[in-house]
């Protein structure tokens, strides 16, 4: 009996129902907790671009207190309604989905890190980044100074770069290299900050940072990602500097 086709089909059907039921229950039960940890992870990455977070910091609290956000388009104009007609929330913009669109069609969130004492003054603009590494996606945030010219800090993350090589873009030590670098060259042209090939350990000019030994292709991905997004945000910063965007706050 145990070997009859009927029994096998029955057994498989029951097994599928039990397994499927179990998994969907798990997904339902753990859903809210997963959403929360993803939110926490995103917010700590945003804040990580401008400050060093310690374990046990109240990330959500600091975020609510210090971050104001808006969404702009390629021309630097603020987008206030989303596709469904509701209010646009920068935290809800899916960077990956936008990355797949052309640069002109993307929505660009801007996270403003406000001054601790004067909550109307912007200390830093934190911009999301997305790109292709060697094996898989890479992403991160770059914190620009209030004129959008100098980098105040970066936080990078990746999905599948080689541990010990490309994966080092996640290390604080590598990210520190970007601090104080300028994205404009002496001629006032936006050149972004390039990670050089090889790791020399020597001081470099304001447009370059030391590379990753053995991870030239990951570094190339980082360079392309930075350049592309900084170029897209240029129009917004031009508006900020001329004062018109500031008024709309």
């Amino acid at each position: 009996m145990r070997q009859s086709n009927g029994y096998i089909i029955l057994f498989t059907a029951i097994m599928t129902i039990i397994v499927g039921g179990l998994l969907s229950v798990t997904s339902q039960v753990l859903g809210p907790a997963q959403k929360k940890s993803i939110e926490l992870d995103t917010k700590s990455q945003i804040l990580g671009a401008v400050m060093n977070l310690e374990k046990g910091d109240d990330i959500l609290g600091i975020y609510d207190q210090r971050i104001k956000s808006l969404v702009v388009d390629i021309n630097g104009e603020e987008i206030s309604t989303n596709a469904k007609g509701g209010a646009m929330v920068a935290e809800e913009v899916n960077i990956l989905k936008n990355f797949k669109k052309s640069t002109e069609e993307r929505e660009y969130p801007v996270f403003m890190y406000m001054n601790a004492s004067d909550s109307n003054q912007v200390d830093s603009y934190i911009l999301p980044l997305y790109g292709n590494g060697l094996w898989d996606k890479i992403w991160g945030f770059v914190a620009m100074d209030k004129n959008g010219e100098k980098i105040m800090g970066v936080s990078f993350d990746h999905k599948g770069e080689t541990p010990g090589l490309g994966a080092r873009i996640r290390d604080k030590q590598i990210q520190e290299r970007y601090k104080g670098k300028s994205i404009y060259n002496e001629g006032g042209e936006l050149v972004s900050v390039y990670m050089i090939k090889g790791e020399k350990g020597e001081p470099l000019d304001p447009n370059h940072v030391d590379g990753l030994s053995g991870a030239t292709l990951t570094a190339k991905g980082v360079n392309e990602m930075l350049k592309s997004y900084l170029t897209s945000y240029e129009a917004y910063f031009k508006k900020v500097n001329s004062g018109s965007a500031q008024a709309s706050l």
């Binding site: 029994y7 057994f11 498989t12 998994l23 798990t26 753990l30 907790a33 997963q34 940890s37």
Partner: peptide
């Protein structure tokens, strides 16, 4: 377990448990 599909059954059990672990990890140790 019917002998003829025992490998499939074993895989289903393992895959379910692994998915559980992965989901718990995603929720509590992102």
């Amino acid at each position: 377990v019917p002998t003829r599909i025992r490998i499939i059954v074993q895989l289903a059990v393992i895959a379910t448990l692994v998915t559980l672990v992965s989901e718990v990890l995603k929720a509590y140790n992102y």
